[in-house]
Computed example of a mutant assay.
Amino acid sequence: MTDRDPESDGSELDAVRDALAAAAGDAGPADTGDGEKDGTFLVTHADDGSAVLRDVASGQVHTLSSNPGVAEGEAVEGVVAPDPPMNVSWQLVEVEERRHIPVEESEEPPTQHSLDLAADQPVGDLTRTERAGTGEIHVISVPEDDTDRAVDDVLDDADASRTRAARLGVNRVEIRAAPGVVVVRYMP
C-alpha cells in the first residue's frame, strides 16, 4: 500500500484513500434473488418521491419506488421487497430499527494509544483496533502536511464511514487528528 510514486497526481493521499476504502470493506457480490431481503441498509439518497438504500453487507443497491420517510445518512434495519411485476424497484416493507449516523470531526486529540499505533506504521497504513466496549478505532498514518486534507477526505466520503458504522452496529463516527495521524472512531 505504501508503494506509491511521490510524483503521482494524488501524492501519498492516494494511499490514505486506499486505506479508507479497505476499511469500509469489500462489499462482495450483489444478492440477485427475487424475493424479500432483510438486512441493514444505509440510506444514500432520499427525496420526497424515492430513496436509495445500500445493503451494508453485500453492497447491493435498492432504489425504492417511494420514500417511506427515511432520510439520507440513516441506517435502517428492515426488509425490502421487489415491486412486482418487473422487480426493478423496491419497497421498504418492514422497519425494525432506524438511526441517523453522524460523521463528525472532534476537537479532541487522538488518544496516546492511537498515537503510539500510528508511530509504528508507515504513512498510508491503517491499523484497526477494537474500542473498549463497543465499536472500533481506525488509526491512519498520513503525511503531516496533508493531515487536514486527509480529515476532509474522510468527511467527504461519509457514506463509507456510515456503512462501516452500520455494519458494526454503532451510532456515530468521530474523527480525531494530530499532525500525521487521523483516527476514525466508530462509537455507540
Rank of each mutant, 00 (worst) to 15 (best):
E72A: 14
P122I: 07
P68D: 05
S58N: 12
D159H: 13
V103Q: 03
E105K: 04
E130L: 14
D83A: 13
D152H: 02
H100R: 13
L53E: 01
G78Y: 08
L53W: 09
H113K: 14
E144R: 01
P122G: 04
M86I: 13
I101T: 05
R164W: 06
V56Q: 03
G59P: 08
R149M: 06
P110L: 07
D120L: 10
R162T: 02
G59L: 10
N171R: 12
H100M: 12
A150T: 02
P179Y: 05
V56N: 06
T111F: 02
L155K: 05
G69K: 09
V76M: 02
D156L: 11
V182S: 04
I101M: 06
A118T: 12
V80T: 11
V123I: 09
S58C: 08
P143D: 09
H100W: 09
P82G: 10
A158H: 10
E72P: 13
V173L: 02
P68F: 07
V139T: 10
G49A: 15
V56P: 07
L155I: 11
R54L: 13
V173G: 01
D148A: 11
D116K: 11
A178H: 06
S50D: 10
P102E: 07
D152V: 06
V79E: 00
R176S: 01
H138Q: 06
V184L: 02
D157S: 14
P122D: 12
G133T: 13
A71E: 12
R99C: 00
V184A: 02
P84D: 14
P102D: 02
V61H: 03
V173F: 04
D156F: 04
S106M: 01
D48Q: 13
E130Q: 13
A158R: 03
A178V: 02
P102N: 05
E96K: 15
V170Y: 06
E97I: 05
P85H: 07
H62P: 07
V154A: 03
E77I: 11
E136P: 07
G133Q: 09
S161H: 01
R99Q: 12
V88K: 15
A160S: 10
H100V: 15
S106N: 09
R164I: 09
A118I: 11
I101Q: 01
A118K: 05
L115I: 14
D120H: 08
S141G: 14
L53R: 09
Q91K: 14
R149N: 10
P85C: 02
M86E: 15
A158M: 10
R98K: 12
D148W: 01
S58Q: 11
D153C: 09
V52E: 00
V170D: 04
